[in-house]
Write a protein that binds this DNA or RNA. Structure first.
Length: 283
DNA sequence: ATGGGGGCCTGCCGGC
DNA sequence: TGCCGGCAGGCCCCCA
């Protein structure tokens, strides 16, 4: 589902209706998603203010006035749907409840935020804000690709000697946090590196070259409001449009976009995931 | 330690 | 129209 750019887009969409506002009532419609929800989650979320809405990798973190932090993961199909906003004289009414509306936040400003997740691969948890970084799901994550801790020396060190394909290595959240299948495919195309290449076989120059490419791909996707496939929607229900910029993802059998290249985009399966690539441009 | 595969869920799409 | 197989943005867990 949502990779880093989509999660960042969702976070930005939620900011105006959640940050600095109180959750007047949280409604929890099932026991859990991927894992059981923490005890008394609805009560612990009702009546508290959202002091800050942050992102770490593909997780949204809401720091609450109760000194707890709410962790939200969208899994593959999770969406945050917003209603009840007023734009000038236009009021956006709340929609009728939908299948898979698992958690509902009614905000003091009148907005309603609904966590809807058909496949239930998503997750929510609550933890003390003071120890949020040491949460089991967050402590193991590698650096943020758009942050200062992600540089040539780091990535070279992490890939050195690794026998796994570079495709799998870049999907490994412990090496770099936030990339998913789409943006790894697009990154490797731009880098001209075949997805099957062993991570440890890349030259230092090739690894160094990946850094700005990863940053560019992610920044462009955030700028475009993410990518919208079957399940993903921006927080306000609008569609992101980065999917129109895909050069290889989902383009099996179509011509390569590189000038002068007459090859067709191929697809192989690695670790159970589809890798799209140009067999001519990527070596 | 590392790498690969299974499984979790539901929905959608294409083919017959 | 209906059924069935294949596929989907993530990621934990188990096994070799």
């Amino acid at each position: 589902m949502p990779e880093l750019p989509e999660v960042e887009t969702v976070r930005r969409g939620l900011l105006p209706v959640m940050e600095g506002q109180r959750i007047t009532q949280a409604t929890v419609n099932r026991d859990g998603l991927r894992w059981p929800f923490p005890a008394n989650m609805a009560a612990r979320l009702s009546g508290v203010r959202v002091n800050a809405l942050r992102r770490r990798s593909k997780y949204i973190l809401a720091d609450l006035s109760s000194d707890e932090t709410l962790l939200i993961h969208l899994g593959m199909s999770g969406r945050m749907l917003i209603s009840g906003q007023t734009f000038g004289s236009f009021h956006h009414d709340h929609p009728a409840p939908q299948k898979h509306d698992h958690v509902v936040f009614d905000m003091e400003g009148g907005a309603r935020v609904i966590f809807n997740d058909a496949r239930r691969f998503g997750a929510m948890d609550l933890m003390p804000t003071a120890g949020a970084d040491s949460h089991l799901l967050l402590a193991v994550l590698g650096p943020e690709p758009l942050g200062n801790g992600f540089d040539e020396a780091y990535l070279q060190a992490r890939l050195r000697g690794r026998n796994t394909p570079i495709k799998s290595a870049l999907l490994d959240q412990q090496i770099i946090a936030g990339l998913g299948n789409i943006y790894v495919c697009e990154t490797l195309f731009r880098a001209g590196i075949a997805p099957q290449t062993k991570a440890g076989a890349l030259s230092d120059g090739q690894v160094a070259g990946l850094i700005p490419i990863i940053r560019d791909v992610l920044a462009e996707a955030i700028e475009a409001g993410g990518s919208s496939l079957r399940d993903y929607r921006q927080a306000d229900g609008e569609l992101g449009y980065f999917q129109h910029s895909f050069q290889v993802y989902g383009r099996e059998g179509q011509p390569c976009v590189a000038p002068g290249c007459d090859a067709t985009i191929g697809r192989i399966v690695q670790s159970g995931r589809s890798s799209f690539y140009c067999p001519s441009c990527q070596r």
